[in-house]
Amino acid sequence: MMSRKRESSKWISSKELKDTTFIEEIPEGERGKPFVITPLGTRVKRLLVSGIVTAKGIEENYTKLTVADSIGPFYVTVFNSEYQPDMKSTADTLELNESVTIMGRVNTFKTDDGVIYININPEKIMRVDAVMLKYWTSRCQRIAIRKILAIGEMSKLDSPDKAKLVAMGYSDEEADCALRHLEHYKSYDIQGFREAITSASNIPVGEAEDASLKEEVFQFIKTHADPQKGCRYEDIVAHMKEKNADQAETDELLNMLGSEGEIYEVALKRYKAV
């Protein structure tokens, strides 16, 4: 019998899961739970999420948990199972406001009027600390932002082409996600999603709202951008280092300028003034 590679877990925010409206059909002859396709095109069967326990309901055969990341809730149902006898008792002992990381399978339910509810059936429940939450959030954001950029690039092509995206430096997975997004979520508000995940960031970025530094970044991009290719990210960071702004501050300034519509990304890590 051919061995099947273990399905690695996807790290996505609660918003990406909540906004999911597409469930893949299970191929004929195959068993198991279906994959869901999220608005960013992520094909998910197994998830790893981190957050704070905000609600807990214990029943005889199952325990329901609500675990909130920095944007919203994940809904988790832990059943009494002979295969994982400790899982429910672990869930039962979790305290409200305790930080957890949960790895589990997605479980879908579709109502008659087409509304999809997704919860997570845990395979692993880990008590974690605040650093783990910050790390998980930062990874989720990075993964999501790269997918959003890939979607932006794919949308600019005359016809979707995975190879072209890979040639630009995106991974196979990011290019596949962009294709799936265009197939299933073409009208989804990607900009709104990006704003939601960035504004909900719980990563301390310091007091970056320095108007003069922001103006410095804007002027540098304006005066140093190649007409076609825009201004290289590395050049902006190097310039801002001379102005005593570190890379994290520069990133924040770029995000602010982007969300204010002053600059935009021509390609991955290349910027132009509007």
Partner: peptide, 19 residues
Amino acid sequence: RIDDSLLKKVMEAYEGEML
């Protein structure tokens, strides 16, 4: 183990792709 100070370094090493 990633602690607060190492997390800062990790984020800096993401070369600005992190927000």
